[in-house]
């Protein structure tokens, strides 16, 4: 039988606090909140450290605690009921469902591979994501940043699957429009 050495927390703080902060900041876009989440992570780790079995590395263990903290944070932000109506599409479409002339997607003429690594594009994207109303960005964040399955997100938000893609539709329209005017039109 191998004896698992209990990791020394202060060493873990020294080694991983920075990385944990980066992850938390990326996911919540708020420095103070990110710091709190990392702090909570270490507090939870301190309580649980005796049960650490060494089945994963201390790093993986800490990140999984952090991840749960982030999910709790988002869960607390979910406001029910989740309002959704077709009215909110009127910025983009006429009553008949045609694109409003000024909102018609044009061609971006962009090389995709280049774009994904373009720093300015990514900064704009992040800005546009943060600018989305909380209820829409929440579903996007759960989807991509938490790598959750669609069904799981529906459960978490308490919405039907139909409602879910309609929310994503609305969010995507807004996001595309924001990128179009803040990034695309600049070049």
């Amino acid at each position: 039988m191998t004896v698992v050495e209990t990791p020394d927390l202060s060493v873990l703080v020294e080694q991983y606090a920075g990385d944990l902060y980066k992850r938390a900041f990326f996911k919540v876009s708020d420095s103070e909140m990110a710091k709190d989440l990392v702090q909570d992570t270490f507090m939870a780790a301190a309580e649980k450290i005796s049960t650490f079995k060494g089945e994963s590395t201390p790093k993986t263990w800490l990140f999984s605690i952090l991840n749960n903290k982030i999910i709790d944070y988002y869960r607390a932000k979910v406001v029910r009921p989740y309002h959704y109506n077709t009215q909110s599409f009127s910025n983009f479409f006429t009553e008949e469902g045609d694109w409003r002339p000024e909102k018609k997607p044009g061609n971006w003429n962009e090389d995709e591979g280049h774009l994904l690594d373009d720093a300015e594009f990514n900064v704009t994207l992040k800005m546009c994501l943060d600018a989305l109303p909380a209820k829409w960005s929440l579903s996007i964040k759960l989807k991509y940043l938490m790598e959750k399955e669609s069904e799981e997100i529906c459960q978490e938000l308490g919405v039907s699957t139909t409602n879910f893609w309609q929310i994503m539709h609305r969010a995507k329209l807004q996001l595309r429009d924001c990128l179009d005017s803040n990034w695309h039109r600049k070049i």
């Binding site: 997607p105 971006w108 774009l115 990514n122 994207l125 595309r176």
Partner: peptide, 11 residues
């Protein structure tokens, strides 16, 4: 096209 691009860019 742009919707897929945004999907990719976010991940």
């Amino acid at each position: 096209k742009q919707s897929y691009l945004i999907e990719k860019a976010i991940s």
